[in-house]
Simulated scan of single mutants.
Amino acid sequence: MIIDIKDYYDKLIKKLNKDISSLGFTPKLSTIRVGEDPAAISYEKSILREAKKLNIGVKNKVFEKNTTKKEIEKYLAQENKSDANGILIFSPMQVDFDQKIIFNKIDADKDVDGLSLKNFNKIFSDQDYINLPTTATAALNFLRDNFDLASKNILLINRSLIIGKPLAMMLLNEDATVTIAHSKTSDVKNMMKDFDIIISAIGKARYFQNVELKNDALVVDLGISQKDDKYYGDFCRKDFIDSSIKYLPAIGGIGRLNACFILRNTYMNGVKNDK
């Protein structure tokens, strides 16, 4: 069974539209892109498209590839002090230094993609999960709104700071039992048959095929990778078309919600700061 996320997306947009239209101000998002990375450009377009639907103002700044750290930091410091309610830096940045240096200089109260480590402790205290990594936040919200997570055994195949680790803590907060697997875990494919929910974000095209799963399992595919000029998830979609196993595909799945949660964070920051 293939899960269609469209209805959930439509409800999310409708609620955000209603909430934002009742404000006495227009939320503002400041975006920064360095270089011409195709994934960054694609995400930028989706942000602009969704922001237009929600009447959120967007200020775009594009730097040339390999712009100096000093120049980017200078602009970011300016935006940290501006009236923007959110700041989004598209990744990857095409720079010759560690991009995390820039991410960690984003004002924590404006860091709508949760790229700064300053916001990580919110996982332990704030179940609205504002200004935390949006893939993890979007996945959690979709699961929490559509399934009972308490007591579920969940296999999470990712340990990154932007998906695996924050999502694991969020799921624990919902009383799920979480097992994290990663590149050094042996025989992951054989493990899957024992879990109620499998969430994968390894980014290897159709890596998991014809694996044994529980009859009523839920599979959430967060891994997107390119192969032969096409994009695929970690699982093979056709394996689930006539199956009792519920499958949320990577293409058109949680990724479709990411821009919404960036803009939701922008709106929430505006409400919090009342400006």
Rank of each mutant, 00 (worst) to 15 (best):
I5W: 04
Y8R: 02
L16R: 06
N17T: 15
N17V: 12
I20A: 03
L23Y: 12
L23I: 14
S30E: 11
V34L: 08
G35E: 04
D37I: 15
Y43A: 10
R49Q: 12
K53A: 10
K53G: 08
L54R: 07
I56V: 12
K59D: 09
N60C: 01
N60V: 03
K65R: 14
K65W: 07
T68G: 00
T68V: 13
Y75C: 08
L76T: 04
G86R: 03
L88N: 08
P92L: 13
M93N: 11
M93A: 01
F97R: 14
N104I: 10
A108L: 14
A108Y: 09
G114A: 14
S116W: 05
K118S: 13
N119P: 07
S125N: 07
D126G: 11
Y129W: 15
L132V: 08
P133Q: 15
T134L: 10
T135D: 02
A136E: 03
L140Y: 02
F142I: 06
L143P: 02
D145Q: 12
N146Q: 05
L156R: 10
N158D: 07
I162G: 06
A168Q: 07
A168K: 02
L171D: 10
D175A: 05
A181Y: 02
S183P: 07
D187S: 13
K189P: 00
N190P: 01
M191I: 01
M192G: 04
K193Y: 05
D194S: 14
I198T: 07
I199T: 05
I202E: 06
K204C: 10
R206D: 12
L213F: 09
D216W: 10
D221W: 09
G223Q: 01
G223R: 00
I224H: 05
K230M: 08
Y231F: 13
D239E: 02
Y247W: 00
I251W: 04
I254G: 02
R256A: 03
A259Y: 08
I262N: 11
N265D: 15
T266Y: 09
T266V: 14
V271L: 13
V271D: 10
D274L: 06
D274S: 12
